[in-house]
Design a binder for these strands. Structure first.
Lengths: 123, 123
DNA sequence: CCGAATCCGTGGGGATACTG
DNA sequence: CAGTATCCCCACGGATTCGG
């Protein structure tokens, strides 16, 4: 590779916009529970306890915290019903639903990578 | 939504395979620096110091740690040259390169989401 | 039922100095 | 140049308790 090409690559590889955008996405998914929560809500709105039951080992505290963050990020919509006892439903917003494309690509890569690792270990 | 549909959705949403696969992918990208490192290597092989210079604020310690993890996960290939002083080059493996599709989708979503947030804040 | 408040342990990651 | 070794901090997340 020529010096010019090296320098060109350095410029491109040091450009931060691409990385920043990816990081934005990663930050929305950061933490231990956001992903399972979003995954659970992909199939429709759910109440607090329903989500809790869907996700093994999650505590109410963490579920509450993560839902709040997701709400702040505009991924989740929270609706309170004045029943007794109170009922609260969560659902993905439009933005939240568009995450599906990202999650799908991650799922596909994850499955393929797992296969690749298994094949490699058999050698 | 009917009860049947609700139950159906619960089953699907509680199914873990999809979430597990996405989590696998997320784990490969976990930590503060893996993403910038991979982004830097997307454009070709680089030496340790080159990578360090490309990523603002990263310390040699963290770069070393993260590169080691990426190598264990089969994302990065490490090559040592017996020159004086020693020279080491890192490059993405085939598996590492296939991450591009995932990162691209994350970048696109990140940019769109940023736009959406900005529009929302102007209201 | 749906959380808030509090306390607390762990480890991810920063700063610095050192080695082959 | 390419890392290691050491120390240290604090934010993430768990357990438990309390309130509307």
């Amino acid at each position: 590779m020529s010096t010019f090409e090296k320098e060109l690559n350095n410029v491109k590889s040091c450009s931060t916009e691409y990385i920043l955008a990816v990081n934005d996405t990663l930050n929305v998914l950061s933490g231990k529970w956001k992903l399972p929560i979003i995954g659970t809500l992909l199939f429709g709105k759910k109440r607090f306890r329903e989500i809790e039951r869907c996700i093994p080992n999650i505590t109410a505290r963490m579920l509450s915290k993560e839902l709040k963050e997701l709400e702040l990020n505009g991924m989740v919509k929270r609706t309170v019903y004045d029943s007794i006892p109170v009922s609260v439903e969560y659902e993905l917003t439009k933005s939240g639903k568009t995450l599906t494309l990202v999650l799908d690509s991650m799922a596909v890569w994850g499955l393929r990578h797992r296969k690749a690792v298994m094949i490699a270990e058999k050698l």
